[in-house]
Design a binder for these strands. Structure first.
Lengths: 344, 344
DNA sequence: ATGAAAGCGCTAACAT
DNA sequence: ATGTTAGCGCTTTCAT
């Protein structure tokens, strides 16, 4: 007598175990485990009955047991040391996540996302070092984030952007050539006749910010120009606005600004418009990212496009390679390009 | 001879185990386990030496082993059945996540975020039913998301918004009174003299959308008015814009629109401005959410504020209560209120 | 190709 | 207050 296929999955108190599947299929645990592992070294008949038992019992292997025995979790972490506001406010992170997800889709790994500006010894770190994931992706790394070193010592890690303590042995990262990006933006400004050029940087405890500033300085030096003024921003709209206000106050004759992110450029633009300053006639503005913020509203930003989604994919690719025991390149560099629109 | 406290943590091949801690502290595994569990029923001396051993070995309990033995993971999932674009594009989700995180911070649970428009039987479902989390929070539930029922059967679940298959026994949820929200918005329009009122709805396979539409219809009926036109949107900017275009085409004499989300209202406004239609003079617009999108740029939206962050917190509160074996109310209703700004 | 047996690192009775 | 003894559900040698 066969059981009707429409019946409810049979289960005891909790979820079905491998033992129950084995019993129902008339084989041993080992055979079921082999089927789970890909069905190698299993006879066609056994394979068939095990598969059926699994379906009938609606069996899903217990992950804790599995990772305890196999010493791998099939999960990776994406760690973003920022608060939720910054994380959700900047489209950059959306692109990264989307890239990571895309690459992960064809793998057997799943993603655990950690948004934590957190202190060392916090729940995130404990969770990660507690063996919950096989590896980690870290973006938006600040110099002060020393707790990340603990993670780095515990498992394979791939950074998005160079980690702050310089690229040492053992550090894997996927970075955009931000020096080049800063150069491209600044060159455009110089070539279009601007001479009193200011810049709004990102947080200077991040390599991306520093690199973009370097590119800016290089091009200016080569053109025998002095930076009109360098103001610090924090990659937020309000930070950009505040920096722009300081520029207008300190150096009202500024005729161009290289802003190290689109979001900050939006803030700068808001101030400029409120003051009745014409863009690009009076002051030209070049952003950085080419995120949705660049074209969300008028004026559309002239900006430096960085391939963030690709960066997410690439980081994942490298981590997966390391997890597979391969030896991917430690440094991967992606290129930026200028996108000319309305503001410069 | 005491070991210098500055030394590197001692470890073998992998991370330290409870066994090593026990050996170093000169006690049994059980005692260490008790210390881990809160230090009850442990002598001061033992507690002290165990704590020291833990610090010296930089010991972190293996989570897989722990959850295998204790049958709990101390993790909960937040499931969002949307694609990354929608998830990051709508500030609503940022508020929810932020609320969940806030409530979780004071608990010992950690958050696993799942953004998956996913098919049934996908990795997310497998992960969840594989016993990786103790409970789940589900927001943005669509009628088609039947795979969520599997989750619901496997573990305690709390919905944000009513789940589509009506509020049955066993369904816990925290909802905003969206009917009331729709009423408030529409009443405002009626009271300010509008008579040819249209609406742009959310996806109609979601209860929130349906509820807001109900409120809209109720007030109109009470005022003995006919809806000028009802257009479907999808909670995105572009969807709102497209719907607005259809309204303008089909019913150009419309004098007000109740738009079921701020993001869609932004899209509608974009179309209106491009057409040279004055807001609110020619057409009044009321949004819904009072998310950052409402005040990001001019004109600032007249909208219905819903307490999304609070909703996230409340959902978490209910789930945590269920996990603690308590019996929280199945339905929690939050209230919406009108915020009058520039568009109506 | 398959089963038996050992063990992954921890918690949880149960003794004492 | 502390140690001993069983497992939790799975993978993985090792035989056969």
């Amino acid at each position: 007598m066969t059981l009707p296929s429409t019946q409810m999955p049979l289960r005891g108190a909790g979820a079905a175990t491998i033992e129950e599947v084995a019993a129902r299929a008339g084989v041993s645990r080992s055979t079921v485990s082999r089927v789970l592992g890909g069905g190698d070294r299993v006879s066609a008949a056994a394979l068939e009955s095990v598969k059926q038992a699994i379906a009938e019992l609606d069996y899903v292997p217990n992950r804790a047991a599995r990772s305890l025995a196999s010493r791998q979790t099939l999960a990776i972490a994406l760690v973003v040391p920022e608060d939720t506001t910054r994380f959700f406010g900047d489209p950059f992170f959306a692109s990264i996540v989307s890239g990571v997800n895309a690459r992960l889709a064809s793998s057997e790994y799943i993603l655990n996302l950690f948004i934590a500006s957190g202190d060392p010894g916090d729940k995130t770190t404990t969770y990660l070092t507690g063996g919950n994931v096989d590896g980690a992706l870290i973006v938006s790394h600040h110099a002060s984030n020393t707790f990340l070193d603990r993670i780095h010592r515990t498992m394979p890690v791939v950074f998005g952007g160079r980690p702050m303590p310089a690229a040492q042995d053992g550090y894997y990262f996927v970075d955009v050539d931000n020096v080049e990006g800063g150069r491209i933006a600044t060159s455009h400004l110089v070539e279009t006749g601007r001479r009193r050029i200011a810049t709004i940087t990102g947080p200077l405890d991040m390599t991306v910010s520093d690199d973009r500033l370097q590119g800016f300085r290089q091009v200016l030096a080569e053109a025998r120009l002095e930076p009109r003024i360098v103001e610090n921003g924090d990659f937020t709209i309000d930070g950009g606005a505040a920096a722009m206000e300081r520029i207008l106050e300190t150096a009202p004759d500024t005729d161009a600004v290289f802003v190290a992110s689109d979001l900050m450029a939006r803030g700068a633009l808001r101030v400029l418009q409120a003051r009745g300053v014409r863009v690009p006639e009076d002051i030209a503005v070049v952003g950085f990212d080419d995120s949705p913020a660049a074209t969300d509203m008028p004026p559309h930003l002239t900006t430096v496009r960085q391939p963030s989604r690709e960066q997410g994919e690439s980081m994942t690719e490298v981590l997966l390679a390391r997890l597979a025991g391969e030896d991917p390149p430690q440094a991967t560099i992606l290129h930026a390009e200028l996108v000319i629109r309305d503001t410069a």
